[in-house]
Amino acid sequence: MPELPPVTVTACPNGPILVRGDFELRTPDGRVVAQHRRTVALCRCGKSTIKPWCDGTHKIIGFVTEPEPPAG
């Protein structure tokens, strides 16, 4: 069986950060944030009404991420 990372983190262009795998999201004081689904989208634009989760608000405010750096 190929070795797979336990967690993957994917930055979506102009959107949230998708997190898949076995992980725990915690508040600064160490409490575990209740997670409702296996794959989650974390707010990256700062304007979500349900932070830390994404609620699609980035599309309304025209949030734009940096273009990918050229390969190599």
Binding site: P16, R37, D55
Partner: peptide
């Protein structure tokens, strides 16, 4: 409320 959170995940998976 469930769809606000769920579909913000699903739309990324569905698009990419």
């Amino acid at each position: 409320d469930e769809h606000v959170e769920a579909d913000a995940v699903h739309e990324q998976i569905a698009a990419h």
